[in-house]
């Protein structure tokens, strides 16, 4: 028996919004530590890694490890039926070929359940080693989303250059060029609003705007985002989900022809 109950059901709604444009299907791997999902987009350029820890749920039971392959479009349709304040419960029997989502309104006056067929997915799983990155940038997630949106008007690619002083986002295209510089915050009053840079070596990398814009669909999950970069390895864009886990996106940098 698998059962995961979340009073803050809107988290699951937001998680689906954060992955459904990038992935069409994915496997939710559940064990007694929680729920994990790892999947690449169709072009194998980016990867989503989601972790929701068992202790972040209001009730969590997983008697046997279970892998549930789901069509994410269908999951998104079902979660759209949940109210923002609803409690969401996912449950499945051992070896079941369906999963059930139960939504309860805050006053318990409305209870809905949606049963969905599971899929057998044979998806590739990548091993991502623990990596020390040359630069990590923490910044407000809304600011990052705004920068990605603004710069994608200028070109398909965005250059992110990180130094000790700050981080510069640039794009160049037919209409001209754009540069946005963010300085490291001098004094941190509210950590959520700060730009904090940890740097061992300066790094400059180029990324496809389209993917960065997909990643920013996770903005509502966290007030802050962390970008981790090293020369010649994929960028990691991480949104921490309060008290329960994180969603990380990996994106291979573009390289010179």
């Amino acid at each position: 028996m698998f059962e995961a109950r979340l009073l803050r059901g809107s988290i699951l709604k937001k998680v689906l919004e954060a992955i459904k444009d990038l992935l069409t299907q994915a496997t939710f791997d559940c064990d007694d530590s929680g729920i994990q999902l790892q999947a690449m987009d169709n072009s194998h350029v980016s990867l989503v890694s989601l972790q929701l820890r068992a202790d972040g749920f209001d009730k969590y039971r997983c008697d046997r490890n279970i892998s549930m392959g789901m069509n994410l479009n269908s999951v998104a349709k079902i979660l759209k039926c949940a109210g923002d304040k609803d409690t969401v419960t996912m449950k499945a029997q051992d070896n079941a070929d369906t999963v059930t989502f139960v939504f309860e309104s805050p006053n318990q006056e409305k209870v809905s359940d949606y049963e969905m067929k599971l899929m057998n997915l044979d998806l590739e799983h990548l091993g991502i080693p623990e990596t020390e990155y040359s630069c990590t940038i923490r910044m407000p997630s809304a600011e990052f989303a705004r920068i990605c949106r603004d710069l994608s008007q200028f070109g398909d690619s965005m250059v992110i250059a990180c130094t000790k002083e700050g981080v510069k986002f640039s794009a160049t295209g037919e209409i001209g060029s754009a540069n946005i510089k963010l300085a490291q915050t001098a004094s941190v009053d509210k950590e959520e609003e700060a730009v904090i840079i940890e740097m061992d070596e300066p790094v400059t990398l180029t990324f496809a705007c389209q993917y960065l814009n997909y990643f920013t669909k996770a903005t509502s999950l966290s007030p802050q985002v962390q970008l981790s970069m090293s020369a010649d390895v994929p960028l990691v864009v991480e949104y921490r989900i309060q008290d329960i886990g994180h969603i990380r996106y990996y994106l291979a940098p573009k390289i010179e022809d």
């Binding site: 194998h44 496809a208 010179e256």
Partner: peptide, 12 residues
């Protein structure tokens, strides 16, 4: 101007 590598070039 630029090539977009896939993730397999970094991770297996």
């Amino acid at each position: 101007c630029c090539i977009q590598p896939i993730l397999h070039q970094y991770y297996i």
